[in-house]
């Protein structure tokens, strides 16, 4: 997994609440059996004026010039600023894949949907929850060329005026993201504990372990 440490980057403001995963990456793109290549289709129905289809070439598609990511000033944004309940809806990891593939590394919102929040960390994407008031203040400040510095180690966001905003993150998630660790490797280090749990559970709930002999 990609590690995340510190970034100073342009901020794109997406001033909407309840941005759902169907909006982030529409379902027709979920037919892909790969993990990559979703970036050009990020926010497809908002970003383009035509209907997107998998594997199409997006270079000549008609753009919705009003959409924030199509404004030249926000083209290279790496930080997305948005509102409450970002990523609600489906569990599709294609949503963080699309955001990451597009180039985003940080999403700041007043809240996230639980599954989406979880999925971000598996893909080197840092979701930051700030209180609604602070999010509001950032929306008021953000203009073309507005940059923020996000430091995961220090758990801080620094604004151009030097204001430092602290954010919370669970220590385990922080550690894994800072080091780009593979979750499966870490869990498999506890194989003995998983086996011990299974043995103990098989005594309590033997009906779940009747197929045991066909395993391995």
């Amino acid at each position: 997994m990609k590690a995340f440490e510190k970034i100073t980057a342009l901020v794109a403001p997406l001033d909407r609440a309840n941005v759902d995963t169907d909006a982030i990456i529409p379902k027709q793109f979920l037919k892909s059996i790969r993990r990559t290549g979703f970036g050009p289709f990020l926010f497809d129905e908002w970003r383009y004026l035509d209907r997107g289809e998998p594997e199409m070439d997006c270079t000549n598609r008609p753009l919705n010039e009003d959409f924030i990511l199509n404004k030249p000033a926000y083209k290279n944004a790496r930080i997305l600023l948005t509102r409450e309940n970002f990523g609600c809806g489906s569990s599709r990891e294609h949503a963080p894949w699309a955001l990451e593939d597009y180039g985003f590394r940080v999403i700041i919102a007043s809240s996230f949907a639980d599954i989406f929040y979880n999925n971000c960390f598996k893909n080197g994407l840092l979701p930051i929850v700030l209180d609604a008031e602070t999010v509001d203040s950032l929306f008021q400040e953000v203009t073309e060329g507005y940059q923020l510095t996000v430091d995961l180690q220090e758990q801080t966001i620094t604004t151009p005026s030097g204001r430092v905003i602290h954010f919370d993150i669970e220590p385990t998630r922080k550690y894994r993201l800072l080091n780009g660790l593979d979750d499966i490797d870490l869990s498999l280090q506890h194989s003995d504990k998983i086996r011990a749990y299974e043995q103990e559970r098989a005594k309590r709930a033997p009906w779940l372990f009747v197929d045991q002999e066909q395993e391995t």
Partner: peptide
């Protein structure tokens, strides 16, 4: 019972 992403 709950939904998970592909990494999970």
């Amino acid at each position: 019972a709950f939904g998970i992403g592909t990494s999970e």
